[in-house]
Design a protein around this nucleic acid. Structure first.
Lengths: 198, 198
DNA sequence: TATTACATGTAAGGGGTTACATGATTTA
DNA sequence: TAAATCATGTAACCCCTTACATGTAATA
C-alpha cells in the first residue's frame, strides 16, 4: 500500500508517470524505488479508485503525456496514511544474512573483504548525502533552522540517512579493527605450534 | 533468492520447516522474516534442485516431521552466495516516506508525535538487542574477542543492530529537539502579530 | 547513422502475505 | 472442555522485477 500513498504525496503537484519515475530516481532513491512498469498500472488503479484524476497533454517528442493529479478523496487517503503510526516494515537484509553465515568460508580474509566492500558502498552513499547536504546549506540561507515546513520535513529525512549511514560506516571500521586483531592472533597461534612440533 | 540461501545456511544443522520458522522468529528476526506458507514450498523446491535432502521423522504430537539437511551441492551454492559482494537491496522505507510528506498535515505536533512513536519502537528494539548483548557477555568468558568463528560472525551482525538502532534513536532525539525549538518559534511568531492587529 | 531521451504501456514470473484446511497432543 | 502447541501443507492475492512492444525527436 505504501507506493499508492507515495504517489498521492507526489501528485499534490501534477506529473506524468514518466516524471514520477524521474522523481523516484533523483529525489526519493534513499526512501523508495519504483519501476515504470509498476507506476503506470498503479496510476490507473488509483484513478479508478477516485484518488487521482488525469488529463492528456501533448509532449515535444514521443506520445502524448498523461498528467495525473490528486483529488480531494486522494488527499483524504493521504492524510489518513500520514496519521498512522510510523510504518516500520520487517527487516530483510540480505547482506547481513551473508555475514551471519560467513564463518562457513572459514577464512577471516573473506570476512575482511566483505567489510572493505561494504564500507565502500556505504561511504559512497554517505558522501553523496553529505554533498547534497552541503550544497543545500550553501544555497539556502534559511537552512536548516528556518526552512519552510515542507523542506524542514525533507531535511529530517536527510538527517536520518546521515545518522544511519554514519553509524554503519562506524560499524565497518570497528569490525575491521576487530577482524584484523583476530587475524593477528590467528597468525601467532598458527606459526608458533608449527615451529614447536618441528 | 536470499531466502533460499538463508535456508541453506540454517540447514547445515538438520531441521524441519516448523523448526526453521522458530529460528526465524527467535534468532533471525532482525535479519530476515519468513512465514511457514513460504518456507514449506521453498524447502520442497530446494530439495527438487538437489540442494537439500529430507527424511521423515516422527513427532510426539501432530503429523510426522520432515527433517531437511543441506547436500554437498547445496553447500557449494551457499558458499558461492557468500563469496558474492554484500547484497545491499534497494531502500523501501515506508516510515521515512511518511515523514517526507508529513508537512501535508500542517501541524508540527503531529510531526512530534511521529518521532515520539518512532523513538519508542526503535528504543524497544535497541533495548532488546542490548539485553541480548549483555546476557551473552555475562554468560560467555570468550566474549567478544576470543569467540569461536561462527559466534564471532553473529556477534558482528549484533553490533550492526546496535550501531544502526543507536544512530536512529539519536536521530529521533535530535529531531525532537529541532521540532520543539521550531514549535517555540512558531508560537512566538503566532501570538505577537495577533496581539498587534487587535 | 546510431544512440539517448521522451513517453506509454503489457506479459510473465518471482517473492511474499493472508487465509484456509487438517488433525494430534498437551496444558489450563 | 477449550486453548495452545506441534506439524504440514494449499490457494488466492498483492507487490515488484524483467523483458518486451511501440514510436518520435534531439543529439553525438
Amino acid at each position: 500500500m505504501s507506493l499508492d500513498h507515495i504517489l498521492l504525496g507526489l501528485l499534490r503537484q501534477p506529473a506524468s508517470g514518466y516524471d514520477l519515475k524521474a522523481i523516484f530516481d533523483q529525489h526519493m532513491h534513499y526512501i523508495w524505488a519504483a519501476e515504470l512498469s509498476q507506476i503506470y498500472p498503479t496510476l490507473q488503479r488509483l484513478e479508478d479508485k477516485g484518488w487521482l484524476r488525469s488529463r492528456s497533454a501533448d509532449s515535444k517528442r514521443g506520445p502524448a503525456r498523461r498528467v495525473y493529479e490528486i483529488t480531494p478523496a486522494g488527499r483524504k487517503a493521504l492524510r489518513e496514511w500520514l496519521e498512522m503510526t510510523p510504518q516500520l516494515g520487517q527487516e530483510r537484509n540480505a547482506a547481513l544474512a551473508q555475514l551471519y553465515f560467513l564463518s562457513e568460508l572459514a577464512d577471516l580474509a573473506k570476512t575482511e573483504r566483505y567489510f572493505v566492500r561494504m564500507r565502500e558502498q556505504l561511504s559512497d552513499r554517505l558522501q553523496a548525502l553529505q554533498r547534497f547536504d552541503r550544497l543545500w546549506s550553501e544555497a539556502d540561507p534559511s537552512y536548516p533552522e528556518r526552512l519552510p515546513s515542507a523542506d524542514f520535513h525533507i531535511y529530517l529525512t536527510l538527517r536520518k540517512g546521515l545518522h544511519s549511514l554514519g553509524g554503519l560506516v562506524a560499524w565497518c571500521d570497528e569490525s575491521l579493527r576487530m577482524i584484523r586483531a583476530r587475524a593477528e592472533r590467528e597468525k601467532a597461534a598458527d606459526v608458533r605450534p608449527v615451529k614447536k612440533t618441528r
